[in-house]
Design a protein around this nucleic acid. Structure first.
Length: 507
RNA sequence: GGGCCUGUAGCUCCAAUGGCAGAGCAGCGGACUUUUAAUCCGAAGCGUGUGGGUUCGAGUCCCACCAGGCCCA
């Protein structure tokens, strides 16, 4: 490949690219690039160790740093470089007196974006900027493309999503969001593990996608000549594990739903599901409160946030309100599941919900909640006791068989968690599946299919179990104050680019 | 799926009513030994997402398509 690159007779009409490619070829002719490099300190290490040194001071300490050269300020016989590594930035103090004419010229020949390694004494400039006075440096890798505007960076949301690598190198906010996401996932995992939950990986490819009400992606296995779907939830497999006797299980995994893309939806997203034997949904509420507060503190340092310009307190305990009571409160009418269906439909109509004739009171109530009540919630709120009609996997409420022991955690108008006392009666589960299957037969392709093996599993006995799902992407959005899911998914789903050839052609 | 909007130099953005397409940064040449978006001087660089159309003349108007954004379903 090296020889090819050297001999390749391509004429690059962009002078910026042409100049950089020429330098790249020079570097190859001069012996090529290093395969490895020993760095002594990260930028952040130096700021930590020497950050409070006085302006003009010499430390007498030699270090070796490495990173991407972001900017060079040439002063004639002196130059300043900005080196960025994974931890932050450190200034390079480069003088002709130290490097000599040839070395100094070689430094000025570098381009912004190049990866370099540099060795020198740690010092502080007269203006107080901690720097490395470069005594030697090496080009580690050439950037053939220029960096975006050093001040404005890369703003175009499409370009930032498609070329996340550029976004990350120039936009500190994007790096911070990405790193916060990693912390959130890591802390979630730690929180569940600390409570005795064990993490498993359940199948993605399924002959039947179950565990949620959603449309799956379809694919095909050639060797088995088998149509398969990508999973839309991990729910039923994790509960199979509980049936198998692994009493506390969880999975943080990618879920795929064949839906549109908008500010809060990406076709592939990350969900945490957890199941705890011998627990009910009340136990899960306490678990969620503790875990979310802990994750917030670990990821952003506090459970008292600002989201979209407004204060938001994730400190437990969260408000708890029954769904039907919340609806009554919001519509300011004394409605309940005992209210006549005619009156409920009229109410639904008031909020723009076109009630289907097949809907019972529970479904109508739920739709009114979604249309009128959910978005009014700001502070973390457990909305509890969802109608049976809209909760095919949740256990009947111990006090009212028209309801289930289910809650959703709603924050700032959106759902962050969905949980139940799990339905563990195989007879009841079959009936719920039959209802869903009927809806499916009637044309609702999002309705839940019957999972016969899951019923068989239930026949062996699922203990009383509390289960939980948390939308990880949305949680990250909340904690990083992002209003669009693409900001927290590094490589969001997009249509392919029409044509964006790399400068290095395929020939 | 519907409505509205956007696409101009590597990046960030200007260009009344259609009338010779501009700036800043980056890059190039030059000056400068303490800069912090360095500064100063100089010379360049785009024919406007793609394809049609209207017009003497289109970045600007019309149609289709591509990609994206916002709102609604």
């Amino acid at each position: 490949m090296t020889d090819d690159t050297l001999s390749e007779p391509i004429a690059f009409d962009d002078p910026i690219l042409a100049a950089r490619i020429a330098k790249h070829r020079d570097a190859l002719r001069a012996g090529g690039y290093p395969y490895r490099f020993d760095r002594s300190d990260l930028a952040s290490d130096l700021h930590e160790r020497f950050g409070d040194s006085d302006p003009g001071s010499e430390t007498g300490v030699d270090v070796t740093v490495a990173g991407r050269l972001m900017n060079v300020r040439d002063m004639g016989r002196l130059a300043f470089g900005v080196l960025q590594d994974v931890s932050g930035r450190i200034q390079l103090f480069v003088s002709k007196a130290v490097l000599g004419d040839e070395g100094f010229a070689r430094f000025l020949d570098l381009d912004s974006g190049d990866w370099i390694g540099a060795t020198g004494e740690v010092m502080v400039t007269k203006k107080g900027e901690l720097s490395v006075r470069v005594s030697s440096f090496v080009l580690l890798s050439k950037a053939l493309r220029p960096l975006p505007d050093k001040w404005h960076g890369l703003k175009d949301v499409e370009a930032r999503s498609r070329q996340r690598y550029v976004d990350l190198m120039v936009n500190a906010e994007s790096r911070k969001t990405a790193l916060t996401r990693a912390k959130v996932v890591s802390e979630l995992r730690r929180q569940f593990e600390d409570r005795g939950f064990i993490e498993f990986e359940t199948p993605v490819l399924l002959s039947q996608a179950t565990g949620a009400v959603a449309r799956p992606f379809e694919t095909h296995h050639n060797a088995l000549d088998l149509d398969l779907s990508l999973r839309i939830a991990t729910e039923l497999f994790l509960k199979r594990l509980v049936i198998g006797g692994i009493e506390r299980v969880f999975e943080i995994g990618r879920i795929f739903r064949n839906e549109g893309v908008d500010a809060t939806h990406n076709p592939e997203f990350t969900m945490l599901e957890a199941y705890q034997a011998l627990a009910d949904y009340g136990d899960i509420m306490e678990l969620v409160e503790e875990v979310l507060a802990a994750v917030a503190v670990a990821a952003v340092g506090t459970s008292t946030l600002t989201y979209q310009g407004r204060m938001l307190d994730l400190t437990p305990p969260f408000r708890r309100v029954r769904l039907v009571d919340l609806v009554a409160e919001v519509v300011d009418e004394d409605v309940s599941l005992d209210t006549s269906i005619v009156r409920l439909r009229a109410l639904a109509d008031r909020y723009g919900v076109e009630a289907d004739p097949s809907w019972g009171p529970g479904r109508v109530m739920f739709e009114i909640y979604e249309a009128a009540a959910e978005s009014t919630i700001w502070e973390p709120t457990f909305v509890t006791d969802y109608p049976k009609e809209v909760s095919p996997l949740a256990r009947l409420h111990r006090d009212d068989p028209r309801l289930t022991e289910r809650f959703e955690l709603v924050i700032a108008g959106s759902e962050y968690a969905n949980a139940f006392s799990e339905l563990n009666d195989p007879f009841d589960q079959r009936e719920r599946f039959e209802v869903q299957a009927a809806a499916r037969a009637a044309g609702d392709d999002e309705a839940h299919p019957i999972d016969e093996d899951y019923i068989r599993a239930l026949e062996y006995g699922l203990p009383p179990t509390g289960g939980l799902g948390i939308g990880v992407d949305r949680l990250v959005m909340l904690l990083t104050d992002c209003k669009h899911i693409r900001e927290v998914i590094l490589f969001p789903t997009m249509r392919p680019e029409a044509a964006s050839p790399p400068v290095v052609g395929s020939r």
